[in-house]
């Protein structure tokens, strides 16, 4: 047992009360106390203050999404970008095979995407509720309509292409194919990156702080994944794809540097903890790794070059996938942060 507490300081009376408060505050803060006759209270008790918020209980709710949604972001990004590549390749009259493969990727995405959304919602009928309204101020509403446009277009184009390959071309099929392709291009462009707006226009600090970058970032990431997939489907020597991959890789490297380089506390979830490491992994795999591999592949011999590009493709795809998971995880971490939404500065 230690000395008795100087009671003069512990009983009320305005002056005594004030002094007691000071003593307790200081003890709280520093874990020790130098006031003459004072002694730090042993156990800090949870407090609600302007510095601690409400017992450090986070203000915001965590995003309710699980794996389906980041996967959807990835699939949609790749599919959208693939549709763009496919359509442009068609218009520029390049390789039919590239066009076809790109369309397949887009088509596959157009099927998987709604499935993932339905999986998230739990019941197919719930997806239909999305089509009740058209709401420009809701990125999710806009996204769903984009998805609908894109999916119809991409599926139509792929389907018509498939039919004409199999049963020979015909005019209606040609029309369908053209219309589908035009739609998949028009919708694919926003489809590849609207998810950046989707999470950017929320109350989650790490997301809304990056709203200006996220669409670009997601577009680049989607493009890199689409390019990687095409390369792996046998277009490993296509120089245009190499150029696109390089462009995306460079952008992603810059994005990574941008995040690392800024000390804004809002970006903490991208740099610290599990979400930070996921972000970094995704960033390295999306940015420097494919970029360097691609540059190296330009130097080396044919064989080595092909293998390097394959590695670059794999890296970009993996990076793109991990990046989406990383952003969602960062969103969770950001929502758990009790300080930022209350504008409490870290010490």
């Amino acid at each position: 047992m230690s000395d008795p507490v100087p009671l003069g300081d512990l009983v009320p009376g305005l002056e005594r009360e004030r002094r007691l408060a000071e003593i307790r505050r200081e003890a709280e803060r520093r874990g020790k106390l130098d006031v003459v006759g004072g002694r730090p209270p042993g156990a800090p008790f949870p407090q609600a203050t302007p510095e601690t918020g409400y017992y450090k209980i986070p203000l915001l709710k965590e995003p309710p999404w699980k794996w389906e949604i980041p996967l959807y972001f990835f699939v949609g990004g790749a599919a959208g970008a693939a549709a763009v590549v496919g359509a442009i390749a068609d218009y520029t009259g390049v390789d039919r095979k590239l066009v076809k493969h790109a369309r397949w990727i887009a088509a596959a995405g157009s099927v998987i995407s709604p499935v993932l959304l339905v999986a998230d919602l739990g019941r197919p009928a719930r997806f239909l509720a999305m089509l009740r309204v058209f709401k420009p101020q809701s990125p999710m509403s806009m996204g769903v309509w984009t998805l609908v446009g894109f999916s119809s277009g991409a599926a139509a184009a792929a389907f018509a292409g498939f039919l004409s390959d199999r049963y020979g071309p015909s005019l209606p099929l040609r029309w369908l194919e053209n219309a589908g392709q035009a739609a998949s291009l028009a919708f694919g462009l926003p489809f590849s990156n609207y998810t950046g707006v989707l999470i950017g226009a929320t109350a989650i600090p790490v997301w809304n702080r990056n709203v200006g970058d996220l669409p670009l970032h997601f577009a680049a990431s989607g493009l890199a994944a689409a390019v990687g997939m095409l390369e792996l489907m046998g277009h490993g020597k296509n120089r245009a794809l190499q150029a696109l991959g390089l462009g995306a890789g460079i952008f992603e490297s810059w994005e990574g540097l941008r995040i690392e380089g800024r000390s804004d506390p809002h970006l903490d979830p991208l740099k610290h903890g599990a979400s930070g490491w996921t972000t970094r992994t995704g960033g390295v795999l999306s940015g420097p790794v494919p970029t360097i591999l691609r540059l190296l592949s330009a130097l080396g011999g044919k064989r080595r070059s092909a293998s390097l590009r394959r590695w670059a493709a794999w890296s970009a795809i993996a990076g793109s996938l991990i990046t989406r998971f990383a952003w969602i995880r960062a969103g969770h971490a950001s929502a758990r942060d009790w300080k930022l939404p209350l504008e409490i500065r870290s010490e």
Binding site: M1, S2, V5, R24, P40, P41, G42, A43, P44, F45
Partner: peptide
Amino acid sequence: PELAAELGL
């Protein structure tokens, strides 16, 4: 808090 401190609680 004072009693908690005394008892190490």
